[in-house]
Design a protein around this nucleic acid. Structure first.
Lengths: 250, 250
DNA sequence: CGCACTTTTGAGACACGTCAAAACGTGTGG
DNA sequence: CCACACGTTTTGACGTGTCTCAAAAGTGCG
C-alpha cells in the first residue's frame, strides 16, 4: 500500500507539494495567504467512501491533495455513468457551491486526502481576489472541455478508440501531476469503472481491453491498469493528446 | 419566416427584452450599465453560418439575443458530435476567452442576433464586478451540468430514452426563454442533428423519432420538431425535468 | 421547374449486449 | 498459514439494438 499523507500531517498551502509541479502557475504570496485562510482543514477518507452525494446540499468544496476519485450520476434503475475522474490538484464540488444541491456524486478510488474549503467564503474570494475568481472560472471551463471530449468519445468513437482515449487521457493527466511513483504508473480502477465511463458493458470492455493489451499498449494487473505505450494509445484513439497548459491550483 | 431583430435595431442592455423574462435574475442599474459598456455591438448571422471555429483564437464572446445555434466537435475523419444547443440568453465562447483557442465550433441553426463582447474586458469585469464574475462562473457551471446529463444520456440511456430526453430538454429550455411564438414551438433542427447529438446513426434516429411520433409525444414537420406531450416525453426519458432556477443573463 | 437537402423504407451485417459460469486474486478470520 | 468468501477478470454462446448501404419519396428554395 502506498503511503498517503494523513490528516495528522497538516499541509500549509505555502508548502503544498503540488505547487512545486510545473503544471501549476506560480501564485503570489498574497494569494497563497488568502487560500491558506480559505482552507478550513484536511479530510482523509478511505477507498470506496463517498465524498459528495447527488441531491445533497454540500457546504464544502475540496481540492484533492492525494488519491483518486470519480464523479458519477445514476439513473433511477441503477445504471451508472461516470463523468470524470479527479486526482491531485483537482477541485471537487464547485457545482454544488454555485447551484445549490449536488447534481452528481463523488466516490474515492483510493485512500484520499482532501483540502476542505467553505462555500460561504467563496464570495469573499470573488470580492477580494479577482485573479483567483478568474482561476475558479478557468477551472470550471477546463472541466467543461474535458466533458466535451468525453462526450465526443462516448458518442462517436468505437469501443477500442474510446478505451484507448480514456486510458491515455487519465495517464496523461496523472503524469502531469507527477504520479510516477511506480513506473509505469498504476491507475487504480476496475474494468467496471471503465465500462461505466465509456457507456459499454463490462464484458465488452473486458474484450476491448484485452485487444489493447495484446497490442502491447497497456497491461492490466491486480488493482488497475498500466500504460506501456502512450503514443500508441493516442494513435489508437485518434486523439491529439492533452495540451500542455499551465493551470491554477486553488 | 419569423421576424428576427436586425443589427440595425441596436438593443441597449437596459431595454433588453430577454431581461423581462422571469427566468433571469434582476440586475442592478450599475451592473446593467457595466454590461452595456462591456457590449461592443451586435452581430447578425444567417442559418448555417459558423459563429466560432475549433482551433481558432477568438477575441470575442457572445450572448444570443435571438435564434438558435449548436456547439460541436469533429473527429479527424469527419464524425461529428454535437455537445449542446444555444438559444436566447445563452453565453457562447467563454471557453475560448479563458483557455485561448476554441476547442469546439459553433454553428447557427437559424438566423441569429448576437451581442458581442470583448475578451479583453472580461478582466475588468472580474476586477470591478465580483457579482457578475460570480455569474460567469455560475453560467460555466450550468453548462457543465448540462453536459453531465448529456453524457449520462449518451452513455446509459436507450435510443428512445435519449431522444425523448433531448427533445424534452430542448423544449423546456426554449419554453423558459419564452419561445412560444408559434404554439407549439417549432425546434429548428434536422434529424441529422439529433443523431449527432445522441451518438446514433441517422437511420436509427429516424426510426426512433417515428416511435415517439406514433405515441403522440411529438410531431415532425418540415424544418423541425414540435413537442405535443412534454410530460409523456419526460416519462419516456426517465428524467425528472429541468429544475426551475433563476439565472443570470450577461 | 428543377436541384439540393431532408426524411423514409427495406435488407442485411456486425458491434456490442446479456446471460451464465468458471477462473483468478486478495483480504479476513479461524 | 490455510481456507473460505468476496470482488474482479475471463471465457463462451447467443441475442439484438444499432449501423451501413442503397434507393425512393418528400420538401423547400432559387
Amino acid at each position: 500500500m502506498e503511503a498517503y499523507p494523513t490528516s495528522a500531517a497538516y499541509t500549509p498551502c505555502q508548502k503544498c507539494p503540488l505547487r512545486r509541479l510545473k503544471t501549476f502557475r506560480e501564485f503570489e504570496a498574497e494569494e497563497l495567504a488568502f487560500i491558506g485562510h480559505f482552507k478550513r482543514g484536511e479530510l482523509s477518507i478511505g477507498k470506496g467512501e463517498t465524498v459528495l452525494t447527488e441531491g445533497v446540499d454540500s457546504v464544502h468544496l475540496y481540492t484533492v491533495l492525494a488519491g483518486w476519485a470519480f464523479r458519477y450520476k445514476l439513473l433511477p434503475d441503477g445504471r451508472r455513468q461516470i463523468l470524470n475522474y479527479a486526482m491531485p490538484g483537482d477541485l471537487i464540488g464547485l457545482q454544488g457551491s454555485l447551484t445549490g444541491e449536488m447534481q452528481h456524486s463523488v466516490e474515492a478510488l483510493s485512500p484520499m486526502v482532501l483540502c476542505v474549503f467553505e462555500r460561504e467564503r467563496l464570495l469573499d474570494l470573488y470580492r477580494n481576489h479577482p485573479g483567483l475568481a478568474f482561476d475558479i472560472t478557468w477551472i470550471a471551463s477546463r472541466e467543461e472541455q474535458i466533458l466535451d471530449e468525453n462526450l465526443l468519445s462516448v458518442g462517436r468513437r468505437s469501443a477500442v478508440e474510446r478505451t484507448a482515449y480514456l486510458l491515455s487521457f487519465i495517464g496523461s493527466r496523472a503524469r502531469s501531476v507527477g504520479l510516477n511513483g511506480e513506473v509505469p504508473l498504476l491507475i487504480p480502477i476496475t474494468q467496471q469503472h471503465i465500462a461505466d465511463t465509456l457507456g459499454l458493458s463490462l464484458v465488452h470492455t473486458n474484450k476491448t481491453i484485452r485487444k489493447l493489451a495484446d497490442r502491447g499498449l497497456i497491461t492490466w494487473r491486480g488493482g488497475g491498469c498500466q500504460i506501456r505505450d502512450l503514443d500508441g494509445l493516442l494513435a489508437a484513439a485518434r486523439w491529439e493528446g492533452l495540451s500542455e497548459t499551465v493551470r491554477p491550483l486553488v
